[in-house]
Amino acid sequence: MSDARTEIFSRVHKALGRESLSPEQRKSLDERMASAPELIRPQFSDDLVKHFAKQLESVSASFVRVKNDAAIVSAVTEHLDSLGLKHNLVVAQSLKDLQWPKNFEIHSGRARDNDLVSVTGCFVAVAETGSVVLLSSPESPTTLNFLPDYHIAIVKSSQLVRHMEDAWTELRQLPGGIPRTINLISGPSKTADVEQTLQVGAHGPRSFHVVFVE
């Protein structure tokens, strides 16, 4: 008996009514893979930031605009205080050295089960869908995006792209190739599995807050 892989490929060839592809066919498919054909992108005419904010709102995420990097800490503090949360944070490596007030407890690294709030940056954000795109790395472990109850993501205006395809264009330029995990996050964790009633905070963060730096 042949091995499963050989047999499945032989079944597929039989189903397609041919043997393996000719060099010409293969070349044309290689070309399609190397530069995908331009596909339909949903058009929207409003300003990118406005659209991004509107989309975030529609997925139950919150959004605040600040003028510069120096205002990030106060925006995060205000958000924590508005929710009555302690000033204990797990943060992505790049945010560890912000001017956090002395009474904040900050650690970086992977999230632990008892971490309540995480603050991360992002790779890009997509205005089309109101998505923040995060890549796994030693500096920004994936657990930061899922284990804590509250996730705050910092998005810089230079990171905002129009369509999801624009994110892929940037991704393909990464020198180290693609990371283990790409997360497109569009709102808090939610479920409608009990009588189709929408409830936030199923397994991941109960709240997703974006601080947008102009």
Partner: peptide
């Protein structure tokens, strides 16, 4: 939904 809360690519 225009997009779900999480769209995750594992590689």
């Amino acid at each position: 939904q225009e997009i779900t809360s999480y769209t995750t690519f594992s590689s």
